[in-house]
C-alpha cells in the first residue's frame, strides 16, 4: 500500500508540474493584460510591467515563479494589489470548505438513502418519487435552486437569513443549494448500482440460504453497490469544497468560488495560477484518498496490489 501511495505521489507531482507550466504560458496568450484601467497611460503601464517583472523574458519569469512556488509563495494578486494569493486563499477557502462539507454531508446521506429506497422499491411509488427528485436535482441549475430557496425560506416565509455568513443558520440554504445536484447524482448512481448488485449470484445464494431481506441489503448489497459512488466522490469533494461561483454570489458568501471565474476575466495571472495549483493539488489529494478508501472497502483492490 505504501509503495502504491508513493507511486501515486510521484505521478501527482509530475502532473502538477505539467499543469502549472501549461497554465503559466497559456494565461499569457489571453488577449489583454492584468492592467485593466482605461485611464492608464503608456508610462504607467510600463511602470506596472516592470513592477511585476513582465519586462523580463517569459522564461525568466517562469523560472522566478517556480522558485517562489517551491517556497510556497504564490505571489501578489495583480487585481487586488496588496493582497497575496496565499492570503486570499487562506481567507476565502474556509468559507467554501465549510459550506462544501455541509453540502456533501447533506447530499451523500440523503442521496444514498434515496438510492437505496428507490432500488428496494423498484417500480413502486417510492421509486417514482425518488427518481423525480433525482431528475429535478440534476436538471435544475444551481442558480435557480439558490434563488428559489432564498426567495421561499428567506424572503417569503422569513425562516432563514437571506444571505451572508454570520452563523450556522446562514449556511443551511446555500449548503442545500450546492448539495442538491450531488444528492441527485448520488441517488441515481446508488439506485443503478444497487439494482445491478441485486442480480448477482451471491445475493441469490444469500437469499436461498434464507438470509433476511434486511440483512441482504445491509450486509451484501450496499457494501458492493457503494463502490461507484465512491468513484465520483474524489472530483465531487474537490469541486464542492473549493466553492461555487453562482451560489456564493447569490448568498454573498465570502468564499473562493468567484476568484476562479474572475481571475480569468481580470487576466490576473498570479491568481489564475494560484487557483489552478490549489485546485489541482486538492483534486489529486481527494482522488488519492478515494483510491485508498477503495482498498479499504474492496479487498480485491488490495489483493491486486500485492
Amino acid at each position: 500500500m505504501r509503495k502504491y501511495i508513493f507511486k501515486r505521489l510521484v505521478a501527482a507531482v509530475l502532473t502538477m508540474w505539467v499543469l502549472i507550466t501549461v497554465v503559466f504560458f497559456l494565461v499569457r496568450l489571453m488577449p489583454g493584460d492584468p492592467f485593466q484601467n482605461p485611464k492608464m497611460t503608456a508610462e504607467i503601464r510600463a511602470n506596472m510591467e516592470s513592477y511585476y517583472g513582465f519586462d523580463k523574458p517569459l522564461i525568466v519569469q517562469y523560472g522566478n515563479y517556480m522558485k517562489n512556488l517551491f517556497k510556497g509563495d504564490l505571489g501578489y494578486s495583480m487585481k487586488f494589489t496588496n493582497k497575496t494569493v496565499n492570503g486570499i486563499i487562506a481567507e476565502s477557502f474556509p468559507f467554501s470548505a465549510d459550506l462544501g462539507i455541509r453540502a456533501l454531508v447533506f447530499a451523500v446521506s440523503f442521496g444514498l438513502v434515496l438510492g437505496i429506497i428507490s432500488a428496494r422499491n423498484r417500480g413502486g411509488k417510492l421509486d417514482f418519487f425518488c427518481v423525480i427528485v433525482a431528475v429535478l436535482g440534476t436538471s435544475i441549475p444551481d442558480f435557480i435552486m439558490g434563488a428559489v430557496l432564498q426567495y421561499g425560506f428567506g424572503i417569503k416565509w422569513g425562516l432563514l437569513p437571506v444571505a451572508q455568513y454570520q452563523g450556522i443558520e446562514y449556511t443551511i440554504l446555500p449548503a442545500c443549494a450546492i448539495g442538491f445536484y450531488t444528492l441527485a447524482s448520488v441517488s441515481r448512481i446508488m439506485r443503478a448500482s444497487m439494482l445491478e448488485v441485486a442480480s448477482q449470484d451471491y445475493i441469490k445464494t444469500a437469499r436461498s440460504k434464507g438470509v433476511s431481506e434486511f440483512r441482504i441489503t445491509a450486509k451484501h448489497q450496499i457494501r458492493n453497490a457503494i463502490m461507484p459512488v465512491m468513484t465520483i466522490m474524489g472530483p465531487t469533494v474537490a469541486s464542492v469544497l473549493t466553492g461555487t461561483f453562482v451560489i456564493e454570489s447569490i448568498f454573498a458568501i465570502p468564499g473562493m468560488g468567484k476568484y476562479y471565474v474572475e481571475s480569468v476575466s481580470n487576466n490576473d495571472y498570479s491568481m489564475v495560477l494560484g487557483m489552478t495549483i490549489f485546485y489541482g493539488v486538492f483534486l489529486i489529494f481527494c482522488n488519492l484518498v478515494v483510491d485508498v478508501l477503495y482498498g479499504v472497502a474492496d479487498p480485491r483492490v488490495r489483493i491486486g496490489e500485492r
Binding site: K39, N47, Y51
Partner: peptide, 8 residues
C-alpha cells in the same frame, strides 16, 4: 517604482 495605476 510604486507603479500606481492612477498616477496620471
Amino acid at each position: 517604482e510604486t507603479a500606481a495605476a492612477y498616477a496620471y
